[in-house]
């Protein structure tokens, strides 16, 4: 059987809110090392990769590898019934066709069990090679969210450029153009307010803002976001999940024909 008890249940609620509009159905791959998920959006332009390590759970047991096929909208409906401070336990039998979500209130005076039907999903996994990216930028996640949202009101695509000075976001549309530069900034009081640029080569790529906007639904998971770029490769937008792992989004670029 599989069982995982997560003291900070709100993390799971946040993960679901971040991915449920991008991906419809996906397998949660459970093994003794944790829970992993990889899924593409229906157009195969964006991909979600989630890792929740066993060590981040208060209790974790997985007797044999399980692929739990889950409709994310339905799981989100169930998790919305958990309080933000609740402890959430996931449970599934090896041969079962359901998953149980147990919610415990912080002072243990309310225990809820929600059972959800699982589905059979043929998952398509992409092999993503380890890559030395040409540019890696870490910046406040709320700042990234704001920039992407602001640019979305002006254009459909953004050119993201990284030089050793910083990262720039540019767009254009019927009403005009916009260009935002965030410079490397390591002299701030709080580490989470820093913008750091690690660069081997300047890079500039074009992406659809609609997807970048969708990724920023993960902002609540982490105060910082890391953008990894290489020429003619999908961008990686990563939100680290404290003590547990990460939520990563990959987005294929637009390329001049």
């Amino acid at each position: 059987m599989f069982e995982g008890r997560l003291l900070q249940g709100s993390l799971l609620k946040k993960v679901l809110e971040a991915i449920k509009d991008l991906v419809t159905d996906t397998n949660f791959d459970c093994s003794e090392t944790g829970i992993a998920l990889q899924a593409m959006d229906s157009s195969h332009v964006a991909l979600v990769s989630l890792l929740l390590k066993d060590t981040g759970f208060d209790h974790f047991r997985c007797d044999r590898n399980l692929a739990l096929g889950i409709n994310l909208q339905n799981m989100s409906k169930m998790l919305k019934c958990a309080g933000n401070d609740d402890i959430i336990t996931l449970k599934a039998e090896d041969e079962g066709d359901t998953i149980t979500f147990m919610f415990e209130s912080p002072n243990q005076d309310k225990i809820s069990d929600f059972e959800m039907k699982l589905m059979d999903i043929d998952s398509e996994h992409l092999g993503i090679p380890d890559t030395d990216y040409q540019a890696i930028v870490t910046m406040p996640s709320a700042e990234f969210q704001r920039i992407v949202r602001d640019l979305s009101s002006i254009g459909d695509t953004a050119v993201i450029g990284v030089t050793k000075e910083g990262i720039s976001f540019s767009t254009g549309g019927d009403i005009g153009k916009a260009n935002i530069v965030c410079r490397q900034n390591t002299n701030v009081d709080k580490e989470e307010d820093q913008t750091t640029v690690e660069i081997h080569e300047p890079v500039s790529l074009t992406f659809a803002l609609r997807y970048l906007n969708s990724f920023t639904k993960a902002t609540a998971l982490s105060p910082q976001v890391t953008l990894s770029l290489s020429k003619e490769l999908p961008i990686v937008v990563e939100y680290k999940i404290e003590k547990m792992g990460f939520l990563r989004f990959y987005l294929a670029p637009k390329i001049e024909e």
């Binding site: 593409m40 195969h44 332009v45 092999g127 999908p234 294929a252």
Partner: peptide
Amino acid sequence: MSSQKSLGDFFQLR
């Protein structure tokens, strides 16, 4: 004109 690539243009199905 730039065209939207799909992830399959970069990564292999496994």
